[in-house]
Every structure is written in C-alpha cells, then in structure tokens.
C-alpha cells in the first residue's frame, strides 16, 4: 500500500504542477513511513519540502497556499500529532467554503497515518477518524487496499473540497494488485462489496476490512456466508450500498478498530436500523476497540478487534432465533464485580 500511495502522489504531482507536498521529514528522508520517498528528488525542494515542526502551521500554510491557487497535500506524521492542527482543520479548512458563501474553496488533502497494530509507543496509534467525520465540511477517506490507496488519493487530490485522508498504518506493508493505467476502483464517496454473502453483512473500513474478510473466510468454513462492505469513505457515507446489502442479508455487524463510544460504527449501526428495521432479523451489533486510551504494545492485541471478536458477534445474530443474552451476562458480571468490591 505504501508504494501505491507514493505512486499516487508522484502521478498527481506529474499531472498538475500546482500540487505541493509538505510536512515533517517528507523531503530527503521521504517521510517516516517513506510515503513521500523520492518526491523531492524528482520534483525539487520547491514542490516537496520539509517544514518546521508545527502542525497548526503546516495546515495553516496549506490553507494560504490553497487560497493562492495551489493544491497542497500535507502529511501529519502520526494520528496523535495532528491534534495541534485541530483548530485550523475545524475552524478554517472545514468552513472556508461556507463562510465565504461558496466563493473560496480549499482543495487540500491532509494525510494522516492512523491506527495501531504496529507496536507503536504511546501517541502513535490513535484512531482519530471520528473527530474529523463529526466536522461538517470535511471529507474523510480511508483505503483498505493498494488499489484504493492509489485511486482514492488521486481522487482526494483532485477533489474541490478538503479531504482528510486516513492511512491505516498496519496496512502500509500489505500487498495488493494495482493497475495505474486502467481504473477499476469506485469513485470517492462509494462503498463497495468486497465479498458477497447471503447470511449477514459485515460493514468495515480501513484497518478493519482485512479483519472482516478473514472472519468471512472462517465463517464460510462453518457454512455462514458473510457479505463484507468496505465503506472506503466515512464522509460522504454511502448509505445506499450498506442499506442494499443489509436488506438482502437481514443481519449486520459493524467493525471498527477505533474505540466504540460515539464512533463511526455507532453512526452506521444507527443508520442501518433506521433504514432497514423491517429487514432485520437481529439487532445491529458493533465490534470496536475498547473505550480506553490506546494501550501499550504489550497488550494491544487484546485491544484490537480481531477475527474472533467479529465471529463472536456474527454468531450472536440469532440465527437459531434465540434471543441474545450477552448483555444479561454483562449485567451479571457487573453485579458480581460490585458485590466483590
């Protein structure tokens, strides 16, 4: 996937001289994940350059350059290091079009490597997509395949609106097919069915997509056919594709790596039950990270929603028409815990 992202930046810079790439260590080093490798060598330090170490400044600089007719693509080094730029992103990047009545748009891309699973020390593994998705005016995109990494990033750079482009770190080294000459990838804003299945729909995005697909393979061995929908873009959200799938299967599990509370999965689950209530044979379930600060590498495997947790959710979808008692178990556990303390 890293090579696909690098190729997308390279091709975007070749096609449009106004595309600029900048951030921390993106120049000669090529970025800490090497996504900008070779860009300074090919396009010069005027078009791919290192900035001072200040994220609000980086995004603010991008705002000014976009006002001046350029198409900046900035890199935030890690998810949690993008927070100093939050005010710039929320108060300016997201609102420029609105606060000028459509006269000033900011076609810029903020690339953020996000999520865990790479043994990162603290502040290097946050899933921050919900903060951005909650902000009107931002598109929020996350690829799960090499092909999508390339084409969605090309789409993001060409988009007239600002795009927060969230790159799942743990998929940087994932291998996949990519034909840069002939596009088969769906456009930005559309979800796709990654694997068809009749028994239940598993909705996932970014780093959770490979987990969902592996769960589908294992479920198939048990005779349960899961349909896996990859959202690809959290904003705009493709309700139509998700809804069509759930109406076919009648059951739905939403999987995300991020902590679950007030997250993207909660939004998807709510929308599914609003739109598909009469097609549903079981409650929509969420599989998510726990509501804890991202844990240290030594226990992150216990935190990350894995195949087992997805399958557990799938088999709670009342295929035998028995009510799901999991929450009663939870309540009993709380009672035991209360008495014990």
């Amino acid at each position: 996937m890293a090579a696909a992202l690098n190729g997308a930046l390279r091709d975007a810079m070749r096609d449009d001289g106004d595309v600029l790439v900048f951030g921390e260590d993106v120049g000669p080093l090529g970025g800490v994940f090497r996504i900008t490798d070779g860009l300074t060598a090919e396009f010069g330090a005027e078009r791919c350059f290192d900035t001072p170490l200040a994220e609000a400044g980086i995004v603010g600089l991008a705002v000014g350059l976009a006002m001046g007719g350029f198409r900046p693509v900035v890199e935030m080094q890690f998810d949690a290091f993008a927070y100093p730029a939050f005010e710039q992103i929320v108060s300016h990047v997201a609102k420029a079009r609105n606060r000028t009545r459509g006269r000033m748009n900011l076609p810029l891309v903020i690339r953020i490597p996000f999520g865990g699973g790479i043994g990162g020390v603290e502040h290097h593994s946050d899933s921050s997509e919900a903060y951005y998705a909650h902000t009107p005016g931002l598109k929020v995109v996350t690829p799960a395949t090499a092909e999508d990494a390339y084409w969605l990033l090309r789409d993001a750079v060409a988009d007239p609106d600002p795009v927060v482009f969230m790159e799942p770190k743990r998929l940087y080294w994932a291998r996949g097919e990519l034909d840069r000459g002939a596009r088969s990838a769906a456009p930005l804003g559309r979800a796709v069915v990654r694997r068809p299945g009749r028994d239940a729909t598993v909705v996932a995005y970014g780093p959770a997509v490979p987990v969902a697909l592996e769960a589908a393979r294992e479920a198939a061995a048990e005779g349960v056919e899961l349909e896996v929908v990859d959202l690809r873009s959290v904003v705009p959200l493709d309700d139509a594709t998700v809804t069509a799938s759930v109406r076919r299967t009648g059951r739905c599990v939403v999987v995300q790596e991020a902590q679950g509370f007030a997250g993207v999965g909660a939004e998807v689950a709510a929308r599914v039950q609003e739109r598909c209530f009469h097609s549903l044979a079981a409650p929509v379930l969420r599989v998510a990270g726990f509501d804890v600060p991202y844990p240290p590498p030594v226990v992150e495997r216990a935190h990350l929603p894995g195949v087992g947790r997805v399958l557990d959710a799938v088999f709670r979808l009342q295929f035998d028409d028995e009510p799901d008692r999991t929450h009663e178990v939870s309540e009993r556990a709380r009672e035991v815990s209360r008495v014990a303390s």
Partner: peptide
C-alpha cells in the same frame, strides 16, 4: 491569530 499562518501560506503562493 489563526489567520496569520494563512497569510504566510498566501505570501508563499504569491
């Protein structure tokens, strides 16, 4: 002061 960084960006664009 959020506009001051935009000013730098636009100056760089010019």
């Amino acid at each position: 002061a959020t506009q001051t960084v935009h000013a730098v960006g636009l100056a760089d664009a010019l």
